[in-house]
Amino acid sequence: MKEIELKMQGKIKRLTNRTFKFDHRVRDGWFSAVYFLKTRDIAKEYKPDNVVTMQFFQKENAVLCGTDEVIALIKEFADDPDNLDIYSLKDGDKIAPFETVLTITGPYQNFGYLEGIIDGILARRTSVATNVYNVVKAAGISGVQKPVIFMGDRDDHFTQQAGDGYAAYIGGSSAQATHAMSEWWGKKGMGTMPHALIQLFDGDIVKASQAYHEMFPEDDLMVLVDYNNDVITDALRVAREFKDKLKAVRVDTSRTMIDQYFVRHPEVLGTFDPRGVNAPLIFALRDTLNSEGYNHVKIVVTGGFNERRIEEFEKQNVPVDIYGVGSSLLKINIGFTGDNVKLNGKDQAKAGRRYRPNARLEKVE
Rank of each mutant, 00 (worst) to 15 (best):
V128W: 04
Q9L: 12
Q260G: 10
P274L: 06
Q109V: 03
H296A: 11
T16Y: 06
G10V: 01
I170K: 02
G326R: 05
A129Y: 02
V318C: 07
K13I: 08
A235G: 15
G106A: 08
K90F: 06
K59R: 14
F283E: 07
S327M: 07
D79E: 15
I12S: 15
K59T: 15
L114M: 07
R286L: 00
K44G: 07
D252I: 05
A239I: 02
I117M: 11
R124W: 01
K59E: 14
A248N: 01
K146M: 09
F216I: 13
Y323F: 15
Y169P: 06
I118W: 04
N290Y: 00
D80E: 15
F36C: 02
I4M: 13
S328L: 10
L114Y: 07
E115T: 13
L64V: 02
L246D: 03
S182K: 01
N134D: 14
M151G: 01
V206E: 01
T126E: 11
A177K: 12
A180E: 15
I42P: 01
M222F: 04
W185N: 12
G112K: 08
V251H: 00
F111Y: 15
S127W: 10
K245E: 14
D49Y: 10
D204A: 05
K94H: 06
I310S: 03
K59M: 04
N358L: 08
P48H: 08
R356N: 11
K21R: 12
A72G: 11
Y355W: 14
A139H: 00
D93I: 05
L289G: 08
L89H: 00
A43C: 15
F336C: 07
D219V: 09
V223F: 02
Y355S: 09
S173G: 11
F31N: 04
K188A: 12
I299D: 00
A138N: 01
A284I: 09
I322A: 07
G191Y: 01
Y113W: 13
R250V: 01
I95M: 02
E307Q: 15
I232R: 09
F111A: 06
V63I: 11
I121W: 04
E314N: 01
G165Y: 02
I121H: 04
W185S: 03
N358E: 10
F242Y: 05
V223T: 11
Y212D: 02
G189T: 00
D220Y: 05
D347E: 12
Y323V: 09
V101E: 00
N83G: 08
E115N: 15
Y113N: 12
R264Y: 03
A248G: 04
K363D: 09
V277Y: 06
H213A: 14
L64Y: 10
W30F: 15
L84H: 11
D287S: 13
R27S: 13
M215G: 13
A62M: 03
A284D: 10
D23M: 11
I310T: 04
I149Y: 13
N110P: 07
I282W: 09
T53K: 04
E3K: 14
V132C: 00
